[in-house]
Design a protein around this nucleic acid. Sequence first.
DNA 1: ACCGTTTTGTGCACACGTTCACAAACGCGG
DNA 2: CCGCGTTTGTGAACGTGTGCACAAAACGGT
Lengths: 228, 228
Amino acid sequence: MSVALSGAGQRRRGGISEATVARLPVYLRVLTGFAESGVATVSSETLAAAAGVGPAKLRKDLSHLGSYGTRGVGYDVEFLVYQISRALGLTQHYSVVIVGVGNLGHALAGYGGFGTRGFRVAALVDADRARVGEQIAGITVRHVDELEAIIAEHEVSIGVIATPAGAAQDVCDRLVACGVTSVLNFAPVVLSVPDQVDVRKVDLSIELQILAFHEQRKALDPGKERSA
Amino acid sequence: MSVALSGAGQRRRGGISEATVARLPVYLRVLTGFAESGVATVSSETLAAAAGVGPAKLRKDLSHLGSYGTRGVGYDVEFLVYQISRALGLTQHYSVVIVGVGNLGHALAGYGGFGTRGFRVAALVDADRARVGEQIAGITVRHVDELEAIIAEHEVSIGVIATPAGAAQDVCDRLVACGVTSVLNFAPVVLSVPDQVDVRKVDLSIELQILAFHEQRKALDPGKERSA
DNA sequence: ACCGTTTTGTGCACACGTTCACAAACGCGG
DNA sequence: CCGCGTTTGTGAACGTGTGCACAAAACGGT
């Protein structure tokens, strides 16, 4: 059933592994910092240290998107910033809709991370009519009934779900029905979506529980630790 | 309650893989939902479907923490809830301190996920003296200068960093100096910590960029998708 | 008491990700 | 122009995680 993209070359346009894709944004951020400090080139060792990974892993990651970088010298910072941005698709612009204007939705709307790199918050929506019209971070809250219209109007491709758990699946279904193919879910539920839709989950509770596990382990068996 | 040394020896106390640990909280949440609905037993197939994983993976995960579950029947919901809780260390209580009372800190303080499972917010702290004394979700904001005292007083073992990027490493160093060994970082920086300290990172910007990558991929090559 | 049905637990094979180690490439100085 | 130190890119070994397929085990009906 799974059509193997035969191993002729892993270099297809989308041939970057998931693990690598997850690290590229980190490299990008670190590189941006270097660029602002006026650094022109970095070695894999320096960049890897700043990104918190091993040099070999970094080089392999970068090699997956092409042979940028000069032997004996390192990588040109600005050029690499551009290449990673392009590989991640950040040269295009994406419209985002945030559903749910509770504490979390508030925080997300105010988060700087949206504007900085090709993401634009098209709208905030909420089910509570009392909040409609409210201004948050320069964006007016609209009612969730307008969701379909908003998505069509702004060509929204990414939906952020910051609703209570009970409403999340319903909102998700509506987003998907409108053609949204990427969802970032902050609600503590497992969303079910069609195969072609990507869902990423951010779950505070899960993170805490993972930390709790390691805390317990450290308490039981002190002295032989090694973290990522 | 005793250590099971019998059988094929993969059964070490801390011998649960990281990937499994990351999924256990999901199982736990789904199981809690079943318990509240009055369901007494679940099969691996049902539970796996609700958790969004394959049945085999679920069974293997659960097998790593013992042979609970009855062949031909399934798993006793309440018993499994207890066992997973215990494996994750949730039978103990952990005190958490949240540093940074911006939009995000606000949202975190109000998040229900803390109280529900063994986590208690010992304090909110902020560097801005104007916010000190403010009441958020029933907790009084204290100044970051008191951090050391608070940690000692409440035996805080988990620190949550919700500060701007610039302050994060500094706060982290102070937490670690006070003996905190688990950190949940929301600031968009790579924290450097000693080996014995666990750091988990939640980064909205990274998640969006990962979604952007997949959006781009889908736009270039529509029709042959397969998500996790 | 026994047989058939159901479901777990797990050995095995495979795919994926990480790390190591080294040859190929580059700049520089003599 | 050549040799030397430096750094990339990558093949190969290794470890980890995943999925399949099946035997062992429990329950219920007859």
